[in-house]
Design a protein around this nucleic acid. Structure first.
Lengths: 343, 343
DNA sequence: GCCGGTTACGTCAACGTTGACGTTGGAGGA
DNA sequence: TCCTCCAACGTCAACGTTGACGTAACCGGC
């Protein structure tokens, strides 16, 4: 170990000197461009090897005509959230095929933080951005887009024009869940949702309403609880629902953590085998619970893959009208959603 | 939206021209350096604002003396794994305090892929690397380290000298788990572990042995099952254990997915309330299962924070001997680990 | 009124790389 | 034999920024 610390990285000039050629020739050899004889190629390769030369991509992208940094930005809500993490992984895998690396950040659903991260990405001249728009306003994203930065929004569509997006069948799948419950005879189906500022929450609620309407059920306002942020809020809300004079016989929980909170209360009251439950978003071990939890499963890898494909198409200069891809979610029946209404 | 696509980003030259000063003065204003009068500062700021100028960090870091890219690399096994994701998030949070962004990649526990990603990071001239070393050999990491790149290993220590690391009390906590079970009267405690090439697996196994020795229990070879990769292998192994003439009365599952597989088999045989279980690594909903699962919980945020702090200290030029931080895991008693031996 | 020092600028070159464009020498054709 | 053409190099400048250094103007002090 060299205790004297950071030694200078060898440059093309060093390689050129050792191989006794010009730096331009080194450049040609490194980039596999024509115009170098076989013997010279070998000499340069050998020199690069002995010096441990590695090209400096930042210098290269500064000088190159296309200015590509071979890096894209990924801006999600919270990278420690399994959904976001799986999405990141899917994007990363697709990016690797293009020899592109991913600069990742969490915007915490905070527009100010999102703006800050966007400038951070911009100063690093990323080739494009895959973002999960923070709730509230998308001004910063829109401005970035209008500057010409290729951009794809995932999970939530843009509130502005001219930008691709990839989302899930939030509305249709929610409707399907309600139909599923109604088909089992439920007539009092509660809705528990996350913050209504989130587009996904709104869509899922709309799907819930459509489901009710479609089966001729009336909407009972007292069975709708929204703006539940986190499991604790969901726990309390579920308790309140169960304390109603006419409690629901089925719950549709429109978000991951809400599902967990609701289950906790059901379990605490010993009602988990008597009240039906369908949750939006699958989660690990859902099949190990008693009863196993029926969920709407999003195809996260497909979401990420599609988003990455779109961004690379745009980076390659595609100017066609924006695509709004919608990936279908599937109803996974495991038991909790098939409980009949209590007599 | 500008359909003509990528317009040229304004540069210092553009700002300088508009503000009628030299680029050097613009540089001074942008970087808040002294040597610019208040009126000039205002003129330059205004010009930058109207042009929408944003500094080009790649050009800056190329020219600067410190050569910092304000970017670090994070190389984990699988970013979609909740453990890795939480770790990434913790590193990211700490990095943000230094205005540093994170280039993230998954090495899939594959040395070849790890080497590839390392060169990708190196060509981008990251300031430092936080890595989860792929099993097998760490040659590529070592080489990178010897070139002078600041590096911190998480979850697994280096097999080479001169590099910081942050790990969990794998051995001590595993011993504690065995003592806990033995304290409840168990004498036939099985060990189910992940691939033995992984350092963590070895440590946890050693802790298991120490626990047995410490309580005077004899090691029964047939109760040890290692190299279980994924839940399916764990499921099969657990079944085999239960089919023994003298089956174990308690299981110590030394990894997340192994715990899941073991639980699956116990559940399938209706033995989940009769056979004790302690797992290494906490997981969501562990408290919702029946019985709730007793686990050794790693302090993931602390791991990530510490790793980030170490890397920044090194980036700042600290040359002191390597630190090997060990973060304590805690035994979370939830029920499954407190089941007494079947009579 | 002159001198030393400071402040507020500007000029120039360089970071590591590559695009544009020379220059050389030899192969090949008329 | 001479000319053309091409392969195989080299030279130079530029990408956007900043370090090193120069210079003009001004200020206070004697």
């Amino acid at each position: 170990m060299d205790v004297r610390g950071a030694r200078r990285e060898p440059t093309m000039k060093d390689v050129a000197a050792l191989a006794q050629v010009s730096t331009k020739t080194v450049s040609r050899v490194i980039n596999d461009l024509p115009g170098a004889g076989p013997d010279v190629v070998e000499r340069v390769r050998a020199a690069a090897r002995t010096l441990g030369y590695r090209p400096n991509l930042t210098a290269s992208s500064l000088r190159r005509s296309d200015k590509r940094s071979a890096t894209i930005g990924v801006l999600f809500e919270d990278l420690s959230n399994p959904f976001d993490a799986a999405l990141l992984r899917a994007v990363e895998d697709r990016a690797r095929q293009n020899d592109v690396l991913v600069l990742a950040g969490s915007n915490e659903d905070d527009p100010a933080l999102q703006r800050e991260l966007l400038t951070s990405l911009a100063t690093r001249r990323v080739d494009g951005i895959v973002a999960m728009a923070a709730g509230g306003h998308q001004d910063a994203l829109q401005q970035e887009r209008e500057r010409g930065t290729p951009m794809v929004l995932v999970d939530r569509p843009p509130t502005f024009d001219g930008t691709d997006s990839v989302t899930t069948t939030n509305r249709d799948s929610s409707r399907e869940a309600v139909l599923h419950l109604a088909g089992r005879g439920h007539r009092r189906i509660a809705f528990l949702g996350d913050r209504q500022t989130l587009w996904t929450s709104q869509e899922r609620y709309t799907g819930y309403l459509e489901g009710l309407a479609h089966t001729g059920l009336t909407l009972h306002e007292e069975l709708v609880r929204t703006d539940l942020h986190g499991p604790d809020a969901a726990e309390t809300a579920t308790a309140a629902l169960l304390d109603l004079a006419e409690p629901p016989t089925a719950l549709f929980t429109a978000q991951n953590l809400v599902t967990v909170g609701a289950m906790r209360t059901l379990r605490a009251r010993g009602l988990h085998h008597r009240i039906a439950l369908i949750g939006f978003d699958d989660f690990p071990l859902a099949d190990m619970l008693e009863p196993a939890v029926t969920v709407l499963r999003q195809d996260v890898p497909a979401l990420g893959r599609k988003a990455a494909e779109l961004i690379f198409t745009r980076i390659d200069g595609d100017q066609s009208p924006p695509t709004h891809a919608v990936i279908p979610a599937t109803l996974v029946q495991r038991g909790s959603g098939e409980i009949p209404p209590a007599p």
